[in-house]
């Protein structure tokens, strides 16, 4: 990726992020946001991150790029993080399982 494309990328995302953080404070004020809009925003993170996880583990190879150790590691990592409310613990559990299964297979 060229330097110009890369710089344009981090500036575009950076400016958008700043506008998200400041937009209501600077331009909307105390007027309430529509309930449906706020509710929809709450679904954005799980939808995007889940789609991103699939795309990442497939690695450009389609469905065949998704392997069993990855699926199990994601399940164990996500469940552990959920139950313990601890991201680090989830990471440790998920990666331990992943490395273990990867070594076995």
């Amino acid at each position: 990726m060229s330097v110009v494309s890369g710089v344009a990328m981090i500036l575009t995302v950076g400016l958008s992020t700043y506008l998200f953080r400041s937009g209501v404070i600077l331009f909307v004020g105390n007027r309430p946001l529509p309930d449906r809009f706020v509710r929809t925003l709450q679904s954005v993170a799980p939808a995007v991150l889940s789609a991103l996880i699939v795309t990442m583990i497939a690695g450009g190879e389609g469905v065949s790029g998704i392997e069993l150790p990855e699926i199990v590691a994601l399940g164990v990592g996500g469940t552990t993080a959920r139950l313990s409310k601890n991201l680090i613990l989830g990471l440790a559990a998920g990666m331990s399982v992943f490395w273990g299964l990867d070594w076995l297979m």
């Binding site: 509710r39 889940s50 590691a73 990592g77 409310k85 991201l87």
Partner: peptide, 21 residues
């Protein structure tokens, strides 16, 4: 990817978040 799985799983409170995921 495992970190993202944790980020998805920890804050889920509503059925619609599960459906989104």
């Amino acid at each position: 990817a495992v970190m993202f799985a944790g980020l998805v799983a920890i804050p889920i409170q509503k059925l619609s978040a599960v459906v989104a995921s």
